[in-house]
């Protein structure tokens, strides 16, 4: 029996997607030889694999993911970090200080205070243990400036694009630094507020239209038009 839905059709949890020789991909599950959806989303398939692109989902930590988190709690030898996932992540003091941590010498709240924003990588995580973070790599650590955006974690892959084509387009057109946390938090840092605004506008647009095709081209076009408009208004002001 074939697949019962057209591509990109919206489905709700429990809807029968396909029957027969198929495998269940993301947000779907196999029961007997039938494949059902497990989240609300849009159906998609390639070959024998049926996927649902979730319209709303949770962030599931994976080892190696770059995430953006906020410090929630200061413990005896590290911090608890909220990474917008069902699990609270831990960051060890020794990892941040890159030497052994001695409670009598170091005051943790002076290194990272509650509410501080950090970019970190997940170094270990499994079903039985909470995720462990590390900041011991270039580009990771405390965030001191920039604009913060929150999106649904399921849409981050769309913002990255094929081999990073989408982010690099925005970066190129706006000259902004963009950090995409896989947990759905984005940091945009630019030379001036206008560029940051422009980059954020593009990101917002991707979130709203994440499930449409040909988005990279439309975003490029939008960015160029906006920039052209700004040039014109600037020139007029100078006159």
């Amino acid at each position: 029996m074939p697949i019962l839905f057209e591509k990109r059709q919206i489905v709700t949890p429990g809807e029968l997607l396909a029957e027969g020789e198929y495998t269940a991909g993301e947000n779907s599950y196999l029961e007997g030889n039938k494949i059902y959806a497990s989240r609300i989303g849009l159906v998609n398939w390639d070959h024998k694999r049926v996927n649902v692109v979730a319209l709303k989902g949770l962030y599931n930590p994976k080892i190696g993911d770059i995430v953006v988190g906020t410090v929630k709690e200061i413990g005896f030898s590290g911090w608890s970090i909220d990474i917008r996932s069902p699990y609270v992540a831990n960051l060890r003091a020794a990892d941040v200080l890159s030497r052994s941590f001695k409670p009598q010498n170091d005051e943790l709240s002076q290194v990272l205070g509650i509410g501080d924003l950090i970019v970190a990588k997940i170094s270990s995580y499994d079903r039985a243990h909470d995720p462990q973070l590390t900041v011991g790599e270039p580009g990771l650590g405390k965030v001191t400036r920039g604009q913060l955006m929150m999106v649904t974690p399921t849409k981050i892959p769309r913002m990255i694009g094929r081999k990073g084509s989408m982010v690099s387009t925005i970066k190129q057109e706006t000259g902004c630094q963009i950090i995409l946390g896989l947990n759905g938090i984005i940091i945009v840092t630019g030379k001036n507020p206008e560029n940051e605004q422009l980059a954020m506008k593009a990101i917002q647009r991707i979130e709203d239209e994440a499930h449409t095709s040909g988005l990279t081209d439309r975003i490029t076009q939008m960015l160029r038009e906006e920039k052209a408009k700004r040039e014109v208004s600037k020139n007029e002001e100078e006159k």
Binding site: P13, G14, Y36, I40, K56
Partner: peptide
């Protein structure tokens, strides 16, 4: 529950 993005077998 479905709107919260929690995976479900069925409604």
């Amino acid at each position: 529950i479905a709107e919260a993005g929690i995976p479900m077998r069925d409604l």
